[in-house]
Amino acid sequence: MIYSRNASRDASGATPDLPSVCVEHYQGAPLSFMTVIATERLRALAEVAAVIPTTTRTIKQFKRIGLPGAPWRFAVTTNGGNILDNGVPDTRWRSSLDAEVRSGGATLSQVNAELLSRIDDSWATKFRVADHLFNYLVVDMARQPADFLAEWDAWCRARGWSASQQGRKIYSMPDAVCKSRAVAEVRRRLQDSGELAPEARLLAAGDGALDAEMLRTADAAIRPRHGELEQLGWTSPNLTLTPSAGILAGVEILDWFLAGAAFATPEPVLS
Rank of each mutant, 00 (worst) to 15 (best):
L31F: 04
S32V: 00
F33A: 00
M34Y: 06
T35S: 01
T35G: 00
T35K: 00
E40D: 13
R43A: 11
A44R: 08
L45N: 02
V48T: 12
A49S: 12
V51H: 04
V51L: 08
T54F: 08
T55Y: 12
T55D: 12
I59L: 08
K60Q: 13
Q61S: 13
I65A: 13
G69C: 04
G69W: 07
R73M: 15
R73C: 10
R73P: 12
A75I: 06
T78Y: 05
N79I: 10
G80F: 06
G81M: 04
G87K: 05
G87L: 02
V88Q: 15
P89G: 03
R92Q: 14
W93D: 01
D98F: 02
D98L: 09
E100L: 12
V101I: 15
G105W: 07
A106T: 09
L108C: 06
L108I: 08
A113M: 01
E114S: 11
S117P: 05
R118W: 13
R118M: 12
D121G: 02
S122Y: 02
W123A: 08
A124T: 02
K126F: 11
K126M: 11
R128F: 03
R128L: 04
D131C: 01
D131M: 01
D131L: 01
H132G: 07
H132D: 15
L133C: 13
F134L: 09
L137C: 02
V138N: 11
V139Q: 10
V139R: 09
D140V: 05
D140M: 05
Q144K: 15
P145Q: 06
A150V: 10
W152E: 13
W152D: 10
W152H: 12
D153W: 05
R157M: 09
R157N: 11
A158V: 03
